[in-house]
């Protein structure tokens, strides 16, 4: 399972490294969305960092939607699913691999946007640094959930529009937990309870994905 996961993750990341969709399309979109949140807050509040963590995660969710969709589009080229089935690749491994690749991509984008939050929304650099571990774990949970829901919509009619409808309600707890952990880091408050939620969400989504990813793919 681990070997297949590694293989799939390498394949996805290699495609990304060659196509540069993340670099030239998704990251600029995220940066623009972050700027727009500043404009939406207005000049009086844009530099006020109390909304920073929430807006960072909101932008991150929209960016993640694009990347989840992209991750599934890679699988939906004609023959890919059939060849995975005929090769007898363990679906749990495929799920883990895709999650891992998506996670790495989300981390890269997340770091850029975190820096953007510090620059544009004036979130304290020290607090953002403290929040970094929780951001990475939250994005990991987001990647696992996204791969699961992405597989549910893959290949269907209007997959790109269906994905947000399925994902966003499930992402809501991650958004809350991530935002609270980030805010707590900014105010040096207690973090651990949000850590627990994010880690549990990560374990739960990875567990459900390993168990049920195969069911979503077979017809």
């Amino acid at each position: 399972m681990i070997r297949i996961a590694w293989l799939v993750a390498k394949k996805d990341l290699r495609i990304e490294a060659r196509s540069r969709v993340l670099l030239w399309q998704v990251v600029p979109f995220g940066a623009m969305a972050l700027l727009l949140t500043g404009l939406a807050l207005g000049p009086a509040h844009a530099g006020n960092s109390s909304a920073g963590p929430g807006l960072f995660y909101l932008v991150m969710l929209f960016v993640a939607l694009l990347m989840i969709n992209r991750s599934q589009v890679l699988e939906s080229t004609p023959g890919t699913r059939a060849s995975i089935a005929t090769l007898g690749l363990d679906p749990a491994g495929v799920f883990l691999g895709k999650t891992l690749a998506l996670c790495v991509e989300l981390w890269v984008t997340g770091l850029v946007l975190l820096a953007g939050t510090v620059l544009v929304l004036h979130t304290a650099l020290h607090g953002a640094f403290l929040a970094l571990p929780s951001v990475l774990v939250t994005l990991g949970a987001l990647a696992a959930a996204g791969t699961l829901y992405g597989a549910m919509t893959a290949g269907g009619e209007g997959a790109a529009t269906l994905l947000p409808v399925l994902c966003l309600p499930a992402f809501a707890p991650l958004l809350i937990a991530g935002e609270r952990a980030f805010s707590a880091a900014l105010t040096h408050g207690g973090l651990w309870e949000w850590w627990v939620i994010v880690v549990v969400a990560l374990v739960a989504y990875v567990g459900v994905g390993i168990l049920l990813y195969g069911v979503l793919e077979e017809s």
């Binding site: 939620i197 549990v200 739960a204 567990g207 168990l211």
Partner: peptide, 20 residues
């Protein structure tokens, strides 16, 4: 595993964490 995961989430939430 699904049952254990679900139960773990419920137990965690019921412990009165997440005061905010």
């Amino acid at each position: 595993v699904l049952v254990v995961l679900g139960a773990a989430i419920i137990v965690l939430l019921s412990q009165g964490i997440l005061h905010s």
